[in-house]
């Protein structure tokens, strides 16, 4: 039994890993989760880029490279499409060790716990709305349906001598 020495070795390894995370600007091949309701994978790192496919909320993608707030990703499902997503549409995979080995079906392995749909969700909103019947969600729903399409937006931008070229960049 050599617990203390082994644990110190583990600690040194962990520190080295953390240091690498701090000094490495681009972490290739990391997994991210789609965290928006309507996501798109585009052909170029731009909101004007052609939409190649629409990954589902909660889908795991592999990040191949990063560029000014955009991430080149690859889908892990059958079609394996590669393309660009903005970083704000993705969040890191949160790994939580569980006490039992209860494999989850679908996109999560036994060591991952999907937080999608947990906590504040449609059901909780429904219960809150029942207790506050003076609130009208009809206009909130109506508001959410208002969304100009990208072609119309592009015309609006060009006609107004504006530019979306810096769209989504961190600079």
């Amino acid at each position: 039994m050599i617990p203390t020495r082994s644990i110190l070795t583990v600690f040194v390894f962990v520190l080295c890993t953390a240091t690498l995370m701090l000094i490495t600007p681009v972490q290739a091949q990391k997994a991210m989760i789609v965290q928006v309701k309507q996501a798109q994978i585009r052909s170029t790192p731009s909101f004007l880029g052609k939409i190649m496919t629409r990954p589902a909320y909660g889908e795991k993608v592999t990040v191949l490279t990063e560029k000014k707030g955009w991430m080149k990703v690859k889908r892990n499902i059958a079609d394996k499409t590669e393309g660009w997503m903005h970083g704000s549409a993705l969040s890191p995979v949160r790994v939580i060790l569980k006490s039992g080995d209860r494999a989850k079906s679908g996109q999560s392995s036994a060591q991952e716990v999907a937080l999608a749909g947990k906590g504040f969700n449609q059901k909780i909103e429904g219960e809150y709305a029942l207790d506050h019947q003076n609130l009208d969600y009809a206009w909130v729903d109506k508001m959410e349906r208002i969304s100009p399409d990208i072609e119309e937006l592009e015309k609006f931008v060009i006609n107004g001598s504006l530019s979306l070229e810096d769209g989504g960049t961190d600079e």
């Binding site: 928006v36 309701k37 704000s88 769209g167 989504g168």
Partner: peptide, 13 residues
């Protein structure tokens, strides 16, 4: 779209 957070779960309205 030019903000640092162009995408939110339900978008901007």
């Amino acid at each position: 779209l030019v903000s640092t957070r162009p995408e939110t779960f339900g978008g901007y309205h």
